[in-house]
Nucleic acid binder design. Structure first.
Lengths: 198, 198
DNA sequence: GCCTCATATTGAACGGTGTTCAATATTGCA
DNA sequence: TGCAATATTGAACACCGTTCAATATGAGGC
């Protein structure tokens, strides 16, 4: 049997990815344990380090999946968006972002909670996924602010993403400003509506 | 000497508070170690647990100081603000918030990074400090949106705080959307200016 | 001042974590 | 089939926050 060993490696990679994703989704990133993973995967603890650099690497792989799903959720929300105002488009995307974060809170949190040791440790796909989100936002923005130059448009794009991200983050965090989901939706709508003059 | 023992306890509380604050400010919350604290304070590791419930309790005490300083920084920024538009007031407060976060990044991060195990673990002063910040925001907001009812005003207040918080958070985080400080200031100004119709 | 006992302080030990690497088992090939 | 090369293992390591039996110190009555 050719490739047996590398095939098994790849299978273990997938298995660990699935298990880690399920465990993070269910119990949160902080509850992820190497020994638990090994037991559920039916392998030794050392085996994890054969197929991933460390637990961070495994979590990064989970984040890759999560980011892709997040991008799809946002992208789907503006399929066939003809006939809607750019402000409406922004609101619908933001609500999709909120919906994804609310339904996958632990996985979504892991996207931002994972510590990246150095600057260059941020993988390419991470920045690309982020830039795709930015691109979604920039499109309706040029319609709302046609006279903004490229620099300011980029700043405004990042500012709006950060704003919505902040509202979602603190809104889902009970201790800070926890409110029911419909109220968070309204907060987003209030801020984004005021962009185009009320 | 009367009170010797309880006086010494209080002195140790203060000493540990100062040391913990300095260490968090310098190396970040994640680098705080019980054994390091004990060594620098010249006490045993167990002594920490005589005057604080656990390390979380100590960090909460540090956060109390930080929150107070943050409140002062924001409050000072709108001293004698007569003659300025409400939008300008919002911008100045937000820039003060950004300035504090930029100059005390690690301490400011600890305010939000510390895990609170249960819901009721959030101390009163934490919510009060937060409500004070909200009050600062609400005042200029009623001028900008006089016809907003109390519920929407409250939502708008929290939404704006969260927005600025999001811009500052991601702006200071290199991997996500790290940009120079003046650009973060501009992002805040762009979003807040658009509130009152460009 | 001194003895006594209640109280405060200590730091080695405990249970837990992520990670490693010498020892073992397995594979793929002549 | 035999054997070198490789893959896998899990006990051991370093380090963490936290505890608690043992020790040292305190304060009050004589």
């Amino acid at each position: 049997m050719a490739q047996t060993t590398s095939t098994r490696r790849e299978a273990l990679r997938q298995t660990l990815l699935d298990i880690a994703e399920a465990r993070i989704a269910h119990n949160g990133l902080a509850a992820l344990r190497a020994r638990d993973l090994a037991q559920e995967a039916g392998c030794s603890v050392g085996a994890i380090y054969n197929v991933y650099d460390d637990l961070n690497g495994l979590v990064m792989a989970v984040n890759g999946r999560t980011f892709q799903a997040l991008g799809q959720a946002v992208g789907n929300s503006i399929k066939d968006d003809d006939g809607h105002s750019p402000t409406d488009t922004l609101i619908r995307m933001s609500h999709a972002y909120l919906g994804f974060a609310a339904e996958n809170t632990n996985l979504w949190r892991a996207l931002f909670d994972l510590e990246m040791s150095a600057d260059s440790d941020v993988p390419d796909w991470y920045m690309e996924a982020l830039n795709q989100l930015f691109a979604y936002i920039a499109a309706p923005l040029v319609q709302i602010f046609p006279d903004l130059d490229k620099t300011d448009l980029d700043l405004m794009t990042r500012a709006l993403f950060s704003s919505v991200h902040g509202i979602v983050t603190l809104g889902l965090e009970k201790r800070i400003s926890g409110v029911p989901l419909p109220q968070i939706e309204r907060m987003i709508a209030l801020v984004l509506s005021s962009l185009s003059g009320k």
